[in-house]
Amino acid sequence: MAVREHTGAEDRQRRTRQQIAASALALFAEQGYADTTVDQIAAAAGVARRTFFRYFPGKDDAIFPDHDETLARVAAVLDGADALEEPLSVVYRGIREVLRMYAADPKASVARYRLLREVPALREREIAVVSRYERLFTRYLLDHADRAIGEHEDAPLLAEVAAAAIVAAHNHVLRQWLRAAGEGDVEARLESAVGIIRRRLAREGGDLDGAATVVVVTRADADPSEVADRVRKALEG
């Protein structure tokens, strides 16, 4: 009985958190990010100001309401993986959890994407948030480099490259989907993109001899999706 009550409380907290985040996005879209206050968001969500701050440190945090929970799910995927499972497959399952977070509410994800395009400071915040996933994947692949990469003198470097490449594939697919207003089977696209990366990173058995090396020179302010697209085309070519 205690477990059910605890679960119910968590569900109510999750709904409140989502309502605050949805109200924030709606107000940002209607009157602009800079002109929206915490008090307005709280009023629109039907909660007190102190309740807002119980869930979010500030209004910019309301734009990324699900990342902490998703990060925990990703960590659980990596920590709970079978010791014999191929490491890149485990990382793919982890990055799929991130994609599913966005796909669970396409309308909100598209609205968030458009807002981030308009407010550079928020884009920087998104990059910082997403980098946490890459660090998890990098650490996992480094810990399993012998199976992910094989006995290779550059295994640590290649493990980091593999993690970055899979995250880049996810980001590329996600942005293409968001630009298309959340239409289409985004999970199938991710599976295809990660398949391209995996085929280039490793042959059967995890040996990276003969793997492609791609150097892409871009502007410092280049759109990450543009960079990922150029890498993808180079790998496919």
Results as ranks from 00 to 15, higher is better:
A2K: 08
E10Q: 13
R12L: 15
R17I: 05
Q19H: 15
I20D: 05
A21Q: 02
L25N: 04
A29K: 07
Q31N: 09
Q31G: 12
A34N: 11
T36N: 13
I41W: 11
G46A: 14
F53K: 09
F56D: 15
F56K: 06
P57K: 08
G58N: 15
H67F: 13
T70H: 00
L71E: 10
A75Y: 08
D79E: 12
D82Y: 08
L84Q: 15
E86F: 12
L88A: 15
V91D: 11
I95R: 05
R96V: 15
P106L: 01
S109N: 04
A111D: 07
L115F: 10
L116T: 09
P120A: 06
L122S: 06
E126K: 14
I127H: 15
A128D: 13
Y133L: 14
R135K: 14
R135C: 08
Y140I: 05
L141F: 10
D143G: 12
H152N: 14
E153H: 13
E153A: 14
D154Y: 12
V161E: 14
A163Y: 04
A165F: 06
H170C: 06
L174W: 00
W177I: 05
L178M: 04
R179V: 07
A181Y: 11
G182H: 00
E183Q: 13
D185W: 02
A188H: 01
I197A: 11
I197K: 03
R199H: 15
A212C: 03
T213P: 03
V216H: 02
D221V: 01
A222G: 00
D223K: 00
D229W: 00
A234M: 04
E236P: 02
E236Y: 02
G237R: 00
